[in-house]
């Protein structure tokens, strides 16, 4: 909530024309894409093509973000974050002026929507992609900072997860510039807010967790126990438990370490599923093995997994009852 005089940037109506003071380019607002603490991002039209425009009443914050985008540009092509197209000021009256920058517009799906549509097996793969981008970013001396589903996008054909908002990107060794509580290790009592690679890796683990808990959850009296419990509750997350717990506790010092562990888990699953295909073509195999392996295959559909989880739960309860008697 901000005083009414400053609400304009979050409330630009479609059709509004924004003309830059310095470079004289005009952008026509199409719709609001998102709002954050620093400003708002709009879809806009410029020379008949779509661009993303971030506008804020804090010129210093805009300058800082532009600095980050420029630093990325220097080292790499356009892979880390969207490419920067323009930076300017929009002067409405003498007392009312805003700063903005313009980026390429990345069209894509939200992470959770994509995974729901294409299947949970995509989660691991997208996260491995994310980790490779983070590795590059870390190698350049940065930390992404405000890593959360809202700040990534999955572009299609081929599916690729990309970082889109660099508002939290901080030089390593400094205090993280911007963060969101649920993804912040400080909030969970599991570390400082000093920017180091492990800070991002904590957030990566939280991004994976929230896929299964889109409404998020409270940290409770023992935050780490809450997290491990939530991981165990989800049959798919449980497979990644070892890797997730290491990331949450800050035991990975680089994203390649985490990526390796994650890849191993994904590979193991793919191997087991390819073994399944083999067993089908070898009908002479002993019956019970086949059954067991077929059951394994069904793991990939989470409804089934849930069923198994329930059976297991019942069995456990049964086991305890027997013991108590």
């Amino acid at each position: 909530m901000r005083p009414s005089t400053k609400k304009l940037v979050t409330n630009l109506s479609p059709g509004t024309k924004i003309k830059g003071k310095w470079h004289q380019q005009t952008y026509q607002i199409v719709k609001l894409l998102g709002s954050g603490t620093i400003g708002s991002v709009y879809l806009a039209l410029h020379n008949q093509s779509y661009v993303a425009l971030k506008i804020s009443d804090q010129p210093s914050a805009i300058t800082t973000e532009v600095n980050v985008l420029k630093a990325f540009k220097k080292v790499q092509g356009s892979r880390l974050g969207p490419s920067l197209l323009d930076v300017d000021d929009w002067i409405i009256t003498k007392d009312q002026s805003y700063s903005f920058y313009v980026m390429e517009y990345l069209r894509g799906y939200e992470l959770n929507t994509f995974i729901k549509r294409k299947g949970y097996e995509w989660l691991g793969i997208l996260i491995v992609q994310l980790l490779s981008d983070l590795r590059e970013l870390h190698d350049q001396g940065w930390v992404f900072g405000d890593l959360k589903p809202e700040n990534v996008i999955v572009t299609d054909a081929p599916p690729r997860l990309r970082l889109i908002d660099v508002g939290g990107t901080t030089k390593q060794g400094r205090a993280v510039k911007e963060y969101t509580e649920f993804y912040d290790r400080g909030y969970w009592g599991l570390g400082t807010r000093k920017a180091d690679p492990a800070y991002d890796l904590f957030a990566v683990a939280m991004v994976m967790i929230q896929v299964f808990y889109p409404n998020r959850f409270d940290k409770g009296p023992n935050p780490y126990r809450t997290l491990t419990y939530k991981i165990k509750q989800s049959p798919i997350l449980r497979r990644y438990a070892g890797c997730l717990e290491k990331a949450l506790l800050g035991k990975y010092t680089s994203s390649s370490e985490m990526s390796q562990d994650l890849s191993k888990i994904i590979l193991k699953r793919q191997q087991s599923s390819s073994q399944n295909t083999k067993t089908r073509s070898q009908p002479r195999r002993n019956n019970s093995t086949v059954k067991r392996q077929q059951r394994k295959q069904k793991h990939y559909q989470w409804e089934e997994s849930l069923g198994i989880a329930m059976v297991t739960a019942l069995f456990t309860i049964f086991y305890f009852v027997i013991h108590m008697l």
Partner: peptide, 22 residues
């Protein structure tokens, strides 16, 4: 002030501000 500089030149000024802030 910083806002009187063209956007291209603000970057370095902002870096100084950030260094001080840290």
């Amino acid at each position: 002030s910083m806002e009187d500089l063209p956007p291209e030149k603000r970057g370095e000024v902002m870096e100084v501000v950030e260094d001080l802030g840290e």
